[in-house]
Amino acid sequence: MKGKVWKYGDNVNTDVIFPGKYTYSPLTPEEMAQHALEDLDPEFARQVRPGDIIVAGRNFGCGSSREQAAICLKAAGVQAIIARSFARIFFRNAINQGLPVFVQEEVVAGLNQGDEVDLELEKGELVAGGKRWLLPPLPLMVLKIIKAGGLIPYTRQKLADSREDEKKRT
């Protein structure tokens, strides 16, 4: 899928991705998307298009455990985030929301704000400006969750399957 690069630096924290003042408002993902990165880059929410990717430095998503930080980016249409490193909870949250995240230094060094990219998630391949990069493969567990569309649908399916199994047994 094609899109554009939004490039940011190190330590982009969850407060600038999704401000704390909205965290306890019952917003829909689409409403959350309108506040995405509001305190860092007010242009982002206005101009982001489905398929765009975020490329960032170290420790992306540091700070609070708020899942809206991942939800708002996904709802804004972000296809994937590629960074030098991620904060632990954000990394998990992104996967749990079905938003793929990759650690790939060379991509971060090689891409700039506004670059046109083509990301093929299935193949783990990214093409931009005639260059081609491979993304590190995701662990099996993670792939399953992303494929299911996030942890909630994944768990839902798992619970339904185990109920089926039980029925068959009895």
Partner: peptide, 14 residues
């Protein structure tokens, strides 16, 4: 250890 919200919902269930 801190985790996210859907994770907690999922652990409540499983």
């Amino acid at each position: 250890v801190g985790v996210g919200r859907s994770e907690v919902a999922s652990v409540w269930a499983t």
